[in-house]
């Protein structure tokens, strides 16, 4: 495998962070979710989630929408098409990197189906 074709080059630098991977993976299961629900699902603080959301929004992977209920502001997060594509590509790259070990990767909903037997290690 040449250096240029190594799957590490397909890892998404934004999603590569385990925390951001959790956030986009959680959002991939829903159409949209409120900030507090994502915070509770990922089990992080408000401030940390805010930072990660800002990064993901800047990368163009999530959309942020605000509304109000009972005069209380709410922030909705949506994983957009680019984000879904990025997540699928990232998980696919992880699958390729860990080929031969990757049940955990293969079982992720965004990983590609395994069509070939694990290659022998050199």
């Amino acid at each position: 495998m040449s250096a240029e074709s190594h799957p590490r080059h397909r890892l998404d630098e934004v999603i590569h962070s385990p925390l951001r991977l959790s956030i986009v993976s959680a959002l991939s299961a829903v159409e949209k979710a409120e900030f507090r629900a994502v915070r509770d699902a990922v089990e992080i603080s408000d401030s940390l989630l805010s930072k990660q959301v800002a990064l993901l929004e800047q990368a163009g992977y999530i959309n942020v929408h605000k509304d109000r209920v009972d005069r209380r502001p709410r922030t909705w997060l949506t994983l957009n098409h680019a984000g879904r594509e990025a997540l699928a590509g990232h998980v696919s790259a992880l699958a390729d990197i860990t080929q031969g070990h990757g049940r955990a990767v293969a079982d992720h909903p965004d990983s590609p189906p395994r069509t070939r037997a694990p290659s022998a290690r050199a």
Binding site: P18, L21, I23, S25, A26, S28, V38, A41, L94
Partner: peptide, 15 residues
């Protein structure tokens, strides 16, 4: 990889 995906799957299920 396994740890990251395990956390991601847990978060996904919870949401």
């Amino acid at each position: 990889v396994e740890a990251a995906l395990a956390d991601a799957t847990t978060a996904r299920r919870a949401l």
